[in-house]
Design a protein around this nucleic acid. Sequence first.
DNA 1: GACTGGCACTCGAATCTCGGGAGTGCCAAA
DNA 2: TTTGGCACTCCCGAGATTCGAGTGCCAGTC
Lengths: 342, 342
Amino acid sequence: MVRVLDERKLDVLRAIVEDYVATHEPVGSKTLVDRHNLGVSPATVRNDMAALEEEGYITQPHTSAGRIPTDAGYRLFVDKLSTVKSLSPAEKKAISSFLAGAVDLDDVVRRTVRLLAQITRQVAIVQYPTLTRSSVRHIEVVTMTPRRLLLVLITSTGRVEQRIVETHHDVEEQLIADLRSRLNTALTGQRMTEAASALASLPEGFSHADRPLVAAIVTSLLEAFTDEGEQRIAVGGAANLTRYGDDFERNVKPVLEALEEHVILLKLLGEATNPQTLTVRIGHENPYEGLATTSVVATGYGSKSETLATLGIVGPTHMDYPSTMGAVRAVARYVSQILADS
Amino acid sequence: MVRVLDERKLDVLRAIVEDYVATHEPVGSKTLVDRHNLGVSPATVRNDMAALEEEGYITQPHTSAGRIPTDAGYRLFVDKLSTVKSLSPAEKKAISSFLAGAVDLDDVVRRTVRLLAQITRQVAIVQYPTLTRSSVRHIEVVTMTPRRLLLVLITSTGRVEQRIVETHHDVEEQLIADLRSRLNTALTGQRMTEAASALASLPEGFSHADRPLVAAIVTSLLEAFTDEGEQRIAVGGAANLTRYGDDFERNVKPVLEALEEHVILLKLLGEATNPQTLTVRIGHENPYEGLATTSVVATGYGSKSETLATLGIVGPTHMDYPSTMGAVRAVARYVSQILADS
DNA sequence: GACTGGCACTCGAATCTCGGGAGTGCCAAA
DNA sequence: TTTGGCACTCCCGAGATTCGAGTGCCAGTC
């Protein structure tokens, strides 16, 4: 009965999505025919619209209004009806030179967030490279006060992690030096997971008296290795939330709240995919109530063989998917490239 | 002619401010007399109101509406008519225990922002301790690749600053070790400003061939010492912007934009005052257009003798000043205390 | 069978009207 | 100087009305 594949019906859906994204107003059959040259009459379009509504791709805010796409409509649009839009050479140039100016990892992330927010005109989210996927570059032990040590962990990705360890007795410089050299001998170059297990046998090499201190340090480092000290995330472009239109309370507030909860953000970004694959979550597909009118476009970044972390944007469901996806993909690629050079 | 000091007139102003802050609605003479026991008739209050309006402390949104305070009105209220409200013992306890759980400087700042936003229900801003006011605890030089060095600067306040230095030739481990020890001998314990000048003579101790590298490192460190690598700032509680009422575009958007521009934020926070003094900037007093309906409450934190940095909140001019000021002051004190213990 | 023009119908958005009421300013009296 | 009285202003909200974009359906044409 229902012709699933009807070329023109899909054209109509595409036109509706494009129009609605551009105007943010329900689109009617007449307008549609005027604006896009579909080569058929409004009446015909109306028939198709009725069918599309029947199938759940579009809906009417109220009788006698135009149609707007449903989440399912956007989904179909993204999956079948659109192609990711590449950036212009000028834009690519701008991205690459802007990122190239970064002085350290923090700076790379900060710049990336800024850039992504600016290009997409949406809220940008960038996760810092995960610790577990990198290896130990160096461990430093610094005496702050005689009873307080600062551990500094430097990873292969350039990330610096710090932990404070309190002791019950004054610690001698000699012991610190010893610790420092043993830690580095044992751990440098190891991947985080391996390093964690290598730590276990560390206390053995020390005198009985020093064991408690060493144990405390081991605990602290383990914590650092296993990312227990939360994932770091950078957010930018919150001012773009203005673009949501009105109904601030319902649309914008939940997003602002989510942006402050890194746990939620991580869920939104989802499992890191490789840089070739874009994840798009539309409206209700998001694992967080309150983002019913919000979509997430995310992708992983890192080397070809290994994804370091995820970045993406958050915006209203009625965003320009082809351009946004293109921008996210491009930025992810350039960041990967910059990091690969390190 | 104009009696500048009229006790009752000030009472009326106080009542207007308090009422308006509570209800966010223009307040009329009748309501005012009902709600606060002023002991006079509405007619009398009306006379006072007319005078207050004449003097520029209150205004009418339109004829035949109640009055709302002007910026000048809030200013007078803050300066003369209100006393900073202390927190309850329970709240103090909560603050102190929440902050005590912090594991490092970053964590202290993150927790502070969160706390401040939560207590005041406003947007919180916390500046990281300024580098220039702290001293060098330790400098670490790490080889990342043979031609790429990572400098890690650890300050007395526990802040960790990193810089990458590229070289033209491979660098030998021996040289690195030499550098590390000389840097630390020369700089450890020095204040940033002194350290900067001590750096100048560093290259002298090295062979001619090594000079370029040492010079590059010196440049990089100087940059780090002098805070050129921008001030770090943490922001939280943006979701509280909902509290502004409507007119999103005019009130909320500029604030969101300002929050992303650290340069602007620094100006807003203003010169660090000592922890005893609260700075309040009301509406147009702010050095940034677009914050006409916004006030800033800020104060410094750090030790008694020395202010490390500034923290504060940003909110609508019609905020509850006594409570907000109390909260900001309290948080600043507790943070100072936590940091002093380090 | 697919498309089209025509037509009656629906219903939200914008405009208007209008009365109620909160609030004001002014004045004369206490 | 304070107060009660009073006329006046003007915002706000509740209908009432109009307007028009958009729809669904149907009969006619290719």
